[in-house]
Nucleic acid binder design. Structure first.
Lengths: 343, 343
DNA sequence: CTGAAAGCGCTAACAG
DNA sequence: CTGTTAGCGCTTTCAG
């Protein structure tokens, strides 16, 4: 079937064009388009034919201008290409869809300025709400947006002190504690920690949990066994080399997140001795490595789902006090975390 | 600093509110907001102060209504949570950003109805253009949108015959041929193919390349060594079992995409004999498995980047004939593809 | 340099 | 059941 180019100046047929074509008033078209009751079946049919003939599609932007809600939310994460965030994204998207909303996605790349830029760009598009994994800790810029009624839920990391928003986190300290406890239960006492930069909330929390885990078992904390920094291979190679070639190398490692686990495994491949390893974050293929990798699993989709559901609860009128949800972690033993201390 | 709630009815300050506060006309505010020349410095400063005081932010939707362009594009993929698509997404997002655009992301989940729904929802939001990885092959629904001036680039898979759009593909047949050639060069003659459902374009193309590769070397094609279907573990387990326990099991396998490679590796873990394997699509950790996995690598970011750049070229006025770009693949030998045929 | 009026495409409110 | 009128927040003429 052929579709003629719209009759209007701008390239797209409008409700007015449809009304003219169908020989009815604008409002009648509006009624048909919005399934409002009280239109004669025959008239409605004429309108529908005109719509079909012109290839008319309602302009959502114009509609929003009148109605207020955009049925759109914004999602800011660190990097869609990271499996942790892509799992979270998918869950947010699914929840949004079930609420009839579309989602703008943006990657901050761990840059606070970019985070701010994205949030404000989304707000200028008048998203109804935001799910944000913050890169920075200064969120004063959100003040006017929140005051204007845009709702926000922070996921994975909390907001700075200047705003009061709902937050969904994972039990970072508890997860790290359980990882350490697991290694200690398997006989380890010299346990290293390879984590992300300490400025990142989750990294700092996991490091805290690591320390607590040692303390709980009466194992002294040794700062020389801790290596925190950016997750690039070169940095991790250097840090692992430092740990493994020191006077008292660790017999076990806790790694601070998915990316770090991979880079650490690569770095470790150069050393003959088998160190035990528990990774924070599960990853595809953990079961296929030799030995299979024991992990403290988070649930990225649950993080996304919980955040988005909380957001939509707010959007549908829940004005109760700010919530802070903490999701549990789960230790999955697969082999690498059960290796005994090397002699 | 405190921000008072907007003085208007609707919750957000408008240009009018700013004008009233600054004691100027609406148009002057507009000029300041848009950095138009010809505003007295002092006046502009008063306006800026009013903006700051009210927490004013331009309503992009209203602006669009007048101007036409939304500075927004839509991206439809199969699943953000799949690393192939998340890599592509990130690249699209980056290109969009460099052109000052925001991106709506949606996952079709391989469902043509959902693909259509997303495309139309994005069009109703008046995106300037679309990058779509199609799930279906009927794209007649796009006709009116294209006629109305929305540009579209299809990525990874071509559009159906009913529309004429730019397309960016990967060299699926060539990649598969090179994988097969590699295995044959290492002495294999009984080579199996485990791929995605044949209805998926890339799967069918890779199967075709597989066949061509055999033919080129004079190795007869044996349909009993081919297993195509959904990438879930159960199906792959069953198919691999069929292949490996048959009268003449293959000594090597070509797997049709990233997910299938993983499920096939899991399935193969149950069999003692070492079959050689080349996987289509590279994946994180391929180097850490034992043996490390030889792959025919695609470049998902390049796919996204190329598609998005083509889209923005169209949006900036390039009306040349429809293009069809094909991106090369690269064989990365790592070990699994160089295993000799089992005795 | 500044402003008033018109209108983008739509829905809300109120007639007939 | 159908239509008219106003106006969402902004930019675009066109006049001062």
């Amino acid at each position: 079937m052929m579709h003629r180019v719209a009759e209007t100046r701008r390239g797209r047929p409008t409700m007015n064009d449809v009304a003219a074509t169908a020989g009815v008033a604008l409002k009648t078209v509006s009624r048909v388009v919005n399934d409002e009751p009280g239109v004669n079946a025959a008239t409605a049919e004429r309108v529908r034919q005109a719509i079909e003939r012109l290839g008319y599609r309602r302009n959502e932007g114009a509609r929003v201008l009148r109605r207020g809600r955009t049925a759109t939310i914004g999602l800011i994460i660190e990097d869609v290409a990271d499996p942790f965030y892509s799992g979270l994204s998918r869950a947010v998207e699914d929840v949004a869809r079930s609420h009839g909303s579309l989602v703008f996605t943006g990657s901050s790349g761990e840059d606070p300025r970019r985070e701010r830029e994205l949030v404000l760009a989304f707000c200028a598009r008048r998203v109804d709400g935001l799910v944000v994994v913050p890169a920075g800790s200064d969120h004063a810029y959100l003040g006017p947006e929140l005051a204007a009624g845009i709702r926000a839920v922070f996921a994975d990391r909390p907001a700075g002190p200047d705003v009061d928003v709902d937050t969904v986190l994972c039990d970072n300290t508890g997860g790290a504690r359980s990882g350490v406890a697991h290694l200690i239960a398997h006989g380890h006492r010299r346990i290293g920690f390879v984590g992300d930069s300490a400025v990142i909330f989750t990294a700092a929390e996991r490091h805290r949990g690591f320390r607590q885990g040692l303390e709980a078992a009466g194992v002294p904390y040794d700062a020389s066994l801790v290596a925190m920094g950016p997750p690039d291979q070169a940095r991790v190679d250097a840090d692992v080399a430092r740990l493994m070639t020191g006077p008292h190398p660790p017999t076990a490692l806790l790694t601070g997140n998915g990316r770090t686990t991979l880079t650490t495994l690569r770095a470790l491949a150069r050393y003959p001795s088998r160190v035990a390893l528990v990774g924070f974050d599960d990853f595809d293929l953990a079961d296929l490595l030799v030995p299979a990798v024991t992990v403290v699993a988070q649930d990225p989709p649950a993080l996304g789902r919980t955040s988005a559901e909380l957001l939509f609860r707010r959007l549908s009128g829940d004005n109760g006090p700010t919530e802070r949800v903490e999701l549990p972690t789960r230790l999955i033993p697969r082999g690498s975390g059960e290796l005994p201390p090397a002699p």
